Simulated scan of single mutants.
Amino acid sequence: MTVLGFVVRSWSGPAFVPPSPPLVAVDAAVLSMTVFPVWSYLTAGEGGRAGAAWGKRRAGLRVVDAGGGRASYRRVAIRNAVKLLPWQLAHIAVARLMLGVDAPVTVGVTYASALVLPPVSIAMAWRDPLRRALHDRVAGTRVIRVSGEPS
């Protein structure tokens, strides 16, 4: 998407963005069409009785709270918001780049944040004895393997 954004931007020149809707509304529209449906699906599955959406169930995994009990919808919602934050930041950066509405520095910082957060989260999980990534630490959750399930 980033490469496509650069190509479209170089061909089209600066975009005309009318004063209405405001840029925040554009960001909200991008969120509602991309990250929000995925966040909703993951939150419904991981916050439900199974504690897992389809992929985690298939892998024999479950999201639990810090004590090993069922994670609340609130915790799971926070977990997934933090987990999907880099994806949303990338969407914002690319959309604003394509529209030409933000300073290059702002777009660069937003995009760099999207690229830095995942490796930081992976490093945290790798170093943590419970293998908790950033999103699990923030939400007070962890992922466990369910005995008797496929691995």
Rank of each mutant, 00 (worst) to 15 (best):
76 V>S: 06
111 Y>L: 15
16 F>L: 10
111 Y>E: 08
27 D>G: 08
1 M>D: 06
15 A>R: 03
82 V>R: 12
128 D>A: 03
125 A>E: 04
2 T>W: 15
70 R>A: 14
32 S>F: 08
13 G>V: 01
37 P>G: 09
64 V>D: 05
72 S>F: 13
86 P>M: 03
91 H>V: 01
131 R>I: 02
27 D>W: 11
59 A>N: 11
71 A>T: 01
122 I>T: 12
57 R>C: 01
151 S>D: 12
74 R>G: 14
142 R>K: 15
89 L>H: 00
21 P>R: 02
94 V>N: 11
11 W>Q: 07
30 V>I: 15
24 V>L: 12
89 L>Y: 00
123 A>L: 14
60 G>Q: 04
142 R>W: 13
87 W>D: 07
125 A>R: 06
86 P>Q: 05
139 A>V: 12
120 V>Y: 07
55 G>A: 03
134 L>G: 13
15 A>Y: 03
23 L>T: 04
75 R>I: 04
17 V>H: 12
134 L>W: 13
48 G>W: 05
2 T>G: 15
18 P>V: 00
29 A>G: 09
146 V>C: 04
139 A>T: 08
24 V>F: 07
20 S>V: 07
23 L>A: 03
55 G>Q: 05
42 L>I: 02
42 L>T: 02
107 V>M: 08
61 L>M: 15
59 A>G: 11
